[in-house]
Design a protein around this nucleic acid. Structure first.
Lengths: 340, 340
DNA sequence: TTGAAAGCGCTAACAG
DNA sequence: CTGTTAGCGCTTTCAA
């Protein structure tokens, strides 16, 4: 038996008009209980699924969310995207995932493509805000603070400054007195905040920020971190701790130190940021600032779906708390370090 | 000045019919060079982007590819998805990414959602093949061999058997004589192939497969691997090498061994599979079988786009070569092990 | 080489 | 509570 594939045939089989079928499907009321039962039965019997292109054309909105992410292979973003996708799908929405590779040109193209496809909303993980095509479309900015003025939409981020502060305090508490700083401020404004937290902790402990111990990397990668650490050592920098603005950098730092004959935590302590699997896997485990990615995704989905349904968000800005996961990389085995 | 937002207005501004505009946009010929120039200019001046819902409704096909992946947070899949997304976007296609979490029910729902949205094709990373909704739609199966009979579509996978063989040979070559096997055969048929490669290598070296050294885990996770290794040790298993069917498992193995006072590679050698960043980051670096993810994604995109444009693929099955990335985890510092 | 017009499947205004 | 109908923006056949 041939299955009915459009609303007209369903209507015919159920002995009602297409309007009624549409109302039943979209829970728009104005039909009797019996009619509903009959229509739903026919729909089920025929495995009928409404054509989303038609619906999209008619309503100028599809049950699709655009998710723009710098790089899905970054474990932190992968986690975030997974959660977003799950949350949205639970509400009947699919996700168009767009990797922007930190390129504004590509980002612009993706946004154009997304609006052309009538997505209902966009989750934007980007420091850029001034996309004109976005006007009128619900947007939630996640994880990356704005480089310029916020143009509209909601913003959710972790308390990165506090995270940087926590990590640095942990190093200081564990006895570090000369902390190197591994960062990459180029694309990621989060890292600026983490760096500020670092500075605040030092100031609070009455310690100077040592120019010679700062490395600003060209990119966030294990390689760049290795190079950075080796460059520091090569020019004779003396440090007993390394604060890294990312777990990836921390992993690179640990590897580079090992290659240079320095063991973590015996000779140098290290902290990371994001609390990704690498922090756990890296030998030794790396103390890292944990972001609540699950909550971040959940909140983003909730807010965006709310906006899509016409609600106005209570706040325009949400800052989520962070915590510190302490591992071996800040547990000095060498008591000497504490006597500095 | 108000921008034109649909084909009708573009047509009016260019002084032609909508049909001509459509033909220009879709390169369907049957227009003069001058007309083309004029239309393109108006399109550009107005930043006009065709409404994809309308196009989708009309043609029953959208420039969207569905990508079904078990879990985007698995670095191997994240790499694959990133490459796929980049390749497809370069050809004007967006990707709906669907995490299936190894659930067939969820997979089924996603497929229904994808077909309802008139996607042009699907990349399916799954062991399941018998989805009826897929008939007529171009499908490329990637990375996961079929659990049952292949229903149609093209299949691309790495030579997992050879990979398992290579890894095992490396352990044997390095002096291992009692190799533990850490695997999780439940969902992932790839791992079965890797396991076969393991068996082939042992057989070739004239060595028995030791029942007592096999662990089949409930899931692919660091925790499961740790538990597995500790269980082996607890029941007094003696081994000098561990072959793992995944880098994640290998990382767990290294951690568990360390926690039990065994150092890699001093006491035990370890190999992983996938050559993800964890293999590099884990201290020590883990020797791992490298899959050419880039080529896999590239081939998948090429084949799927070809099928979408009506071509018939030359082959229905592609097996991609693998290689071994040797790291410290199979470079024994302890000469004694070689004299076994 | 170009235009007129039908219609994809759906929703929503309106009429009853 | 239910049906009729117009039309979303686009492609494509047919006619010129």
């Amino acid at each position: 038996m041939e299955k009915a594939k459009n609303i007209k045939e369903i209507a015919r089989l159920a002995g009602v008009s297409t309007a009624t079928v549409s109302r039943v499907i979209n829970h728009n009321g104005r039909f009797s209980k019996e009619t509903e039962q009959r229509v739903l039965k026919v729909i089920q019997q025929n495995d009928y699924v409404p054509n989303m292109s038609a619906k999209g054309l008619r309503t100028s909105r599809t049950e699709v969310i655009g998710v723009m992410v710098p790089d899905i292979t970054n474990p932190h973003f992968a986690n975030l995207v997974l959660r977003l996708e799950m949350d949205f799908f639970a509400h009947g929405y699919s996700c168009l995932i767009c990797n922007t590779n930190e390129s504004q040109t590509l980002e612009q193209k993706h946004i154009q493509s997304l609006t052309a496809q009538n997505v209902s909303g966009i989750v934007l993980i980007s420091g850029t805000r001034n996309y004109p095509d976005l006007s009128g479309l619900p947007v939630v900015y996640v994880d990356r603070p704005s480089r310029g003025p916020q143009a509209g939409g909601v913003m959710i981020e972790s308390d990165n400054e506090e995270g940087g502060y926590l990590a640095t305090c942990e190093l200081l508490r564990a006895g570090c007195r000369h902390i190197a700083m591994l960062k990459c401020l180029a694309n990621d404004t989060n890292q600026v905040a983490r760096y500020r937290g670092f500075q605040r902790a030092l100031a609070q402990w009455g310690m100077p920020e040592e120019e010679a111990l700062r490395a600003d990397l060209a990119e966030v990668s294990v390689d760049a971190a290795q190079t950075g650490i080796k460059a520091l050592l090569a020019r004779g920098a003396q440090f007993d701790g390394v604060m890294c603005t990312t777990d990836t950098l921390a992993a690179g730092a640990v590897i580079a130190l090992r290659e240079e004959g320095l063991e973590v935590p015996r000779d140098v302590l290290v902290t990371g940021f994001d609390d990704c699997q690498v922090a756990y896997i890296c030998g030794p485990g790396i103390t890292s600032v944990r972001q609540d990615v699950e909550q971040m995704a959940h909140l983003a989905a909730e807010l965006l779906l709310g906006m899509i349904h016409g609600e106005t968000p209570k706040q325009l800005y949400y800052k989520l708390p962070v915590s510190l996961t302490v591992r071996d990389s800040t547990r000095p085995r060498n008591a000497a370090i504490k006597q500095n």
